[in-house]
Design a protein around this nucleic acid. Structure first.
Lengths: 220, 220, 220, 220
DNA sequence: ACCACCGGGACAACCCGTTCCT
DNA sequence: AGGAACGGGTTGTCCCGGTGGT
């Protein structure tokens, strides 16, 4: 997740970087430009929202011409989608990793909670895009598809894990489907609250507390 | 909450209504125009989002001139804020009512769950504005203030209720503050899920289920 | 000329005046309203120019509703024209007066110079409308007519005066027509300079000086 | 000064020119577009005044899209200022040239008079912008600055010239400062009169006559 | 008779995302 | 990869009638 928030230097710095990079292999330079744009876009989307963030600003902040922009991305939308999928892929990877590293289900669940906190901090100032993804999904089928797919996948992950736990006897025989949905809902809700009102509470603690409440119902 | 989603007639119908209204008392006519605009705006915001919804479209759909629009609202923002506060006031009223009608705390909590479901259905197709409110709060301090105030109030409501329950002996001595926050988070999360993926689950049932899980931890 | 720049109270003051005036005879009140509007308009036109001054602002500053405005004046233009003619009539009166009060031509000319200085100070902060009159005359035939008529009249006045002076032997036999035009031109030029760069020179003195130069050529 | 008033072809002609120009080197094409816009703007400002001239009209008359317009100028104001400074620079150049070409002061003064006449004719139909410049200087500090600077410079030019004349013994020991101001004032006044009432007199002749009057006071 | 609210459209300036051509 | 140009669309405001209350 860190990759999403690095490259936070000033445009001026960027310009210099650019000049220095002039003697790089072409392909490398192209890739770098592409990532500069993405980093800049991420920040702009987070700061102003998808609609209010202008391509112009993104280019300016990235130290890149509009011509370059449309060379790399066919539209603002595509860039947005690209950002979205990158984000989701990272999340997916994290999930899989965590699950693989855990021996039993309760342990994996506990780790999830930790990871959740990490997402929150790792995204840095760019967490608001998360909400923006969600919001835009309402109005654009393609984004909706891209957001809903992994989302359902997460729920399935959880449900399967819970089922496993039940099977191995470490969890009570609750309804895995619905429990998973509740858990995800809680996670999402806490994220949004932390997003909107970061100083309103110690959200890390509240998150721990909330998951513990649910676990109380699950553990044998 | 119903007032927010009525007035769903076509623009053509509206135009006729307008003409008929020409002979009404001025004040009444003015009020009606204002509400027409608000209803239209609610729909447009829900359908396209705050930024993408144009004042022009809102006026067209309301069968109202832009002159009328800017007579009633000084800006798109102000209208948005107006919509927001109306919504929140309604919610506040519902909360207070429900609490007053309940004898003990567990009963009130149960009713809340029901009310939550009602919100979901009552908003009709215009629920997406909810997300839009949340989203815009990120970028606009005034909206943020307007959204965060009642939000914190709700949490306080809940926390007080829980404290009451503990005092009257109907609830376990849990941490009321954090529990309230978790409950609100779950509500919000479920709402968003229902918003994004209405057909992904029977959210009414999931909601019931989720609150039951929390209640299990609370009840003596 | 003073009438043009009095009534410089704040809108608040006006509002009070208005309320007090509620018990006045209707006609009187109407007249007052009309003059309030004109005073406000004068100020607004002077401050922002004809186009940039909005009827709204004029009304606000006058403490008058837009309905009232259009009751008294059929358009912004008409008001402007009204202002213009009022101004010009005042000037005309002053001219006639001065000429009547003078025994011989050189004396009258000297007095003109004094009067000119008075115009400058009497107009107070609202002198820029003068330029605005001139400017608008370019684009609007009606205003042009209203501005050009008295203008030519002034020149004729001067020319006649000079002719008189020649006839009575107090002036050299110069071309009265062209001399008059030059004098008026100088007056206008000095006015504009004083308008644009009030602190650039002691325009009163320069005016005296300039007219003296011309007089040197005229006096026998 | 002629450059300011050429390019008076119809929009249609322009469109053709544009298409032909599509195969020009980019920089040249850009420059041409810029000048097309400026020429069109000059005409529109002259015809309707600064405020009343719309960017739309300017673009239409120039055969250029609004996008192109805002690519070249950041605002209508900036364009106006650009026009102003170009004009003033031209004037400055003319002044310097004339002075350099003259042997003694009286000769230079005489030439100035001629030049003044040329300005009048060279500007063609676009002289009204002159008044517009003056007018807008009242309401906009930046324009004021741009207009007042060269203006004071002209006066200083004149004053220095006069001082030179006094020193070289070709002029009487008058006050050079005030005399210069009077001369400029007369010039401005005559210009405005010629502007407002072109058929009211033979302004060329009147100008000659007026300057002669002043010269009478200066020459030894 | 006078005034105030309300509404009507046209249109302003500006900017946006995008494409074309070098 | 980039500078120039495109045109449609944005919010907001302007000037102005009409309708009803005082």
């Amino acid at each position: 997740l860190k990759d999403l928030s690095e490259k936070q230097m000033s445009p001026k710095m960027k310009a210099i970087t650019k000049e220095r990079a002039a003697s790089q292999p072409l392909q490398e330079r192209s890739l770098e430009t592409r990532q500069d744009i993405m980093a800049s876009a991420l920040e702009q989307f987070a700061r102003h929202g998808y609609e209010a963030a202008s391509v112009n600003e993104i280019c300016l902040a990235a130290g890149v011409s509009k011509g370059a922009f449309y060379h790399h991305f066919s539209s603002k939308q595509e860039l947005f989608l690209e950002l979205l999928t990158t984000w989701l892929d990272l999340m997916d990877g994290q999930f899989a990793l965590l699950r693989a590293q855990s021996d039993n289900v309760p342990q994996a669940l506990a780790k999830m909670t930790v990871m959740f906190g990490e997402v929150y901090t790792a995204a840095g100032g760019n967490l608001p895009v998360f909400l923006e993804f969600w919001s835009q999904a309402q109005y654009n089928p393609q984004i909706w598809q891209s957001v809903i797919d992994p989302y359902r996948r997460y729920q399935k992950y959880f449900a399967e894990m819970l089922q496993e736990g039940i099977d191995e006897g470490s969890l009570k025989p609750i309804d895995p489907q619905m429990t998973a949905q509740v858990m995800v809902a809680q996670a999402v809700g806490l994220l949004l609250q932390g997003l909107l009102d970061p100083d309103g509470a110690d959200w890390q603690r509240v998150t721990q507390y909330g998951f513990q409440m649910i676990l109380n119902d699950l553990l044998v």
